[in-house]
Design a binder for these strands. Structure first.
Length: 776
RNA sequence: GGGCCCAUGGUCCAGCGGUUAAGACGUCGCGUUCACAUCGCGAAGAUCGAGAGUUCGAAUCCCUCUGGGCCCACCA
């Protein structure tokens, strides 16, 4: 009998992937059916942000693993809802638009700017979608969503209006991070710190009713007009006699109290410092703690206000230089020191931020800290240890969330202000509002009856949009049946670095709106770092572009690489070398499949001990893989299968059963037993690998086992349990000994050798003798 | 300053109370028509970051230290 492989290709050809992907699309095997009888598994896919190229290889790997989650759930018998979205709101889009068209947002008419911003990301978005497809994502590409769509923004506004009605939103004048250059309040997340040189000046202030002076050290002398108190450390002997006395602010001649407070460091400067509104967040904290009244010294354009007296109208830096000069002339400054100062910088404009009080909208979150923490106990984390990051963040929250931004490209805040009573008027939900260019839908002010309104020009913080993704994808307020079936979602996959933003804000917002958690599982992936273990960043220039790697090695090799390298939740190194290394396994598997494809498939017959042994081993593999899949940890199955195929199945079972499979000197039944076992193993391996390497698995499956896709099958069952599995190590050891002996004797592996089969391996004697050409 | 995580052959990564410490990549040697040179077999290479402790027994548990990564706070 001649055997020819049904698999013809010499190697796994990555060009086949495109065809397979198109087949999936035309067969609609991944289309979500909300009416299905199966249990629904909804994935709150993170909509990626196309903020520049190249797309981060770690992010691409992340999405390929999200697809593994989807495929795993399908093979566990669930009806999977796997939406795809793209995030397109906020400052990075504006930034990209400015660069792309060489304009400045603040100098461009809003309408015009929005038009440009709306399409600025289209090419980047197309590229991202292309990457997702080449990685084989089984998501919904037919109608993927965008966070800047009318639909999405309408829902963001609806949730705002609902919360407004519940009294969860208020407007307040508070000190906040303000970027003068961008002209907006910004979030803490938009700030980085840089060590910049600064001048620490020591000033002599007169103490009231005394001949003494007190020396105040400051890097911000221009803020003395906003000083409300002086503090010294309670234990500082130098100042104990001054507690409760007053000092006079130079130039302004206003008196401020000297009080003891532990925030003053005896080691730094003079030991005494002024508390002004606002030099830094310590000032803000103390103003709040001590109930001080703020003095607005700087306006939103970055100029001194009339509170600064003769310095009014000057820019901050000019005022500082001027006042230092004046103090030097009058002998108030006794010393100047050059220090480096950790300065908060706006991430986008690279200019120092100021703390300025502005009227902003706030969402209440302090009242929910306990509730969110309690509710999140039910959320299952993968891996569990990352729960800590969320808990730490919730504990650290000390103010409500400022949600308004003075920017253009975002969801507009649906609010008009009555021109006569100045009160905010909020419309009914159900429409996408743009108050900066539309007339108020409310004709008469509910408070004063006024009929004239001004539209709010601000937009929301982008997290205010993205934090309702679980509501948007489940068609909240749009399709009651769909929502009831899909919410809460099953899982939120996301990266570790946005736990305190995206994960936290989503929990908060969805809890406030629906009263329960938006998903059951939180699946957290680490960062993709470079080959040296350093975080990739554009400034360092170590960002790896996934496109050339995908083109060269294909989706499956890329996916197998990230599954086998990125352990659940931990950071993983990325390099082309490592993808090449992983790709060897697919070649190996390909050849195993090609070999097995030579033989006909056989119904189950009486199996030999060798067959029952490898099936017992296979059984263990299935058990181990399922443990990994149940935790959505693909590192475990990827490595377990590689280990099994490469080190047990191919070198030992394939060799032991080869003569039987070819039918040399064995009965027809024994031959059929080998055929059956070979195919049984390959089928299970393919099924177990299908979520990780969907292309190759499907190709081989359709070539050998079925007209239909492997992706509508379920994971293999464990039905081959047997004690023979205990003998695996002995078999491996014995084969190794024989190979070594032949090596020592310098004879070919096919040459005969005199060797005894060990007692415990007697059951396998016949196969072992033929395999090694052993003579007793 | 507070917190979290990590430390295993040249590199990556398993093992989490008892194994001759697994595997992959890389290196070296030998080998090949018959699934695979995008291969096979074999070899070298790890006192499991350091120290102390618990235990009959520790890479594995406790403590201290060192080095690295990350998050939060932050010097007026």
């Amino acid at each position: 009998m001649r055997f020819t492989p049904k698999i013809k290709e010499k190697v796994w050809e990555i060009k086949l992937e495109k065809k397979i992907f198109d087949k999936w699309t035309s067969e609609k095997i991944h289309v979500f059916n909300v009416k299905s009888k199966k249990k629904i598994f909804a994935i709150d896919t993170p909509p990626p942000y196309p903020s520049g190229r190249p797309w981060h290889i770690g992010a691409a790997a992340h999405y390929s693993q999200i697809d593994m989650i989807a495929r795993t759930a399908r093979m566990m018998g669930k009806e999977v809802y796997f939406p795809i979205g793209i995030d397109r709101n906020g400052v990075p889009v504006e930034n990209y638009t400015e660069k792309k068209f060489n304009i400045r947002m603040q100098d461009t008419p809003r309408e015009k700017f929005l038009e440009l911003a709306k399409t600025a990301l289209d090419d980047l978005e197309a590229e991202m979608i292309g990457i997702m497809k080449s990685m084989g994502l089984s998501g919904n590409f037919e109608n993927y969503y965008r966070t800047d769509s009318t639909e999405y923004r309408k829902l963001t506004q609806t949730t705002f209006i609902m919360m407004w009605k519940k009294g969860l939103i208020y407007e307040d004048m508070r000190p906040n991070n303000f970027c003068i250059d961008c002209g907006t309040t910004i979030a803490d997340a938009d700030i980085t710190y840089e060590d910049l040189p600064a001048q620490l000046v020591y000033m002599n202030w007169k103490v009231k009713d005394s001949d003494e002076n007190i020396i105040i050290a400051s890097t911000r002398p221009e803020l003395i007009c906003a000083c409300q108190t002086l503090i010294v450390n309670p234990d500082d002997e130098r100042f104990k006699h001054l507690h409760g006395k007053f000092a006079t602010i130079p130039i302004y001649n206003r008196e401020v109290k000297i009080i003891p407070h532990p925030a003053a460091d005896t080691e730094f400067g003079s030991g005494a410092l002024m508390i002004c509104s606002y030099g830094d967040y310590e000032d803000v904290r103390l103003f709040r703690e001590l109930g001080l009244k703020e003095v607005v010294a700087i306006d939103s354009k970055g100029r001194m206000t009339d509170k600064a007296g003769k310095y009014a109208g000057l820019k901050i830096k000019e005022a500082r230089m001027k006042i230092i000069q004046d103090f030097e002339n009058t002998g108030i400054i006794i010393k100047k020191e050059n220090i480096t100062h950790r300065t908060p910088i706006c991430d986008r404009s690279n200019t120092p931020i100021e703390i300025i009080s502005m009227k902003e909208f706030y969402l209440k979150q302090l009242d929910f800290k306990g509730k969110i923490k309690k509710a999140s106990e039910k959320l299952k984390f993968h891996p569990e240890e990352h729960r800590q990051i969320l808990n730490n963040w919730i504990d650290a929250i000390s103010i409500d969330w400022p949600i308004s931004r003075r920017r253009f490209y975002g969801t507009e805040i649906p609010v008009w202000f009555c021109k006569s009573c100045k009160k905010a008027v909020v419309p009914e939900p159900g429409k996408y509002y743009q108050p900066w260019k539309e007339r108020s839908p409310v004709r008469k002010c509910p408070s004063c009856g006024g009929r004239s309104f001004t539209g709010d020009g601000r937009t929301f913080d982008t997290w205010f949009d993205s934090s309702i993704s679980p509501l948007f994808i489940t068609k909240f307020m749009k399709d009651k049946t769909f929502f009831a079936k899909t919410y809460p979602c099953s899982i939120r996959p996301q990266a570790k670095d946005i736990i305190r933003t995206w994960l936290y804000y989503t929990l908060l917002r969805c809890y406030q709106i629906t009263g329960n958690l938006p998903f059951e599982h939180a699946w957290i992936q680490g960062y993709g770092v470079d080959e040296k273990g350093e975080k990739m960043s554009k400034s360092k220039g170590n960002v790896i572009d996934p496109i050339p790697i995908l083109e060269k090695y294909g989706g499956d090799n890329f996916r197998f690489w990230d599954a086998a390298e990125a352990s659940l939740g931990s950071d993983f190194r990325s390099s082309e070398q490592r993808v090449i290394g992983s790709s060897k396994f697919l070649t190996k598997l390909w050849n195993v499949a090609k070999y097995i494809s030579m033989f006909p498939q056989s119904p189950e017959v009486k199996l030999t001990p060798t067959d029952r042994w490898i099936l017992a081993e296979l059984n263990k593999v299935i058990e181990d893989c399922m443990k990994g899949y149940e935790d959505f940890n693909f590192f475990i199955p990827a490595n377990r299968i590689r280990e099994f195929v490469w080190n047990v199945f191919a070198p030992h079972y394939l060799e032991m059963s080869k003569a039987r499979a070819y039918g040399t000197n064995f009965s027809k039944e024994d031959q059929k037993a080998a055929w059956f076992t070979l195919n049984e193993c390959l089928k299970s391996i393919l099924l177990l690998l299908a979520p990780i390497t969907p292309f190759l698995s499907d190709f081989v499956w359709r070539t050998l086992y079925g007209k239909k896709s492997i992706h509508i099958e379920q994971f293999p069952k464990t039905r081959w349990k047997s004690d023979l599995g205990k003998l695996t190590q002995d078999i491996i050891d014995f084969n190794s000994v024989v190979w070594n002996k032949k090596k020592e004797k310098n004879i070919s592996l096919k040459d005969p050798i005199k060797i005894e089969i060990p007692k415990d391996l007697k059951e396998f004697e016949k196969d072992l003798i033929v395999m090694h050409n052993a003579k007793s």
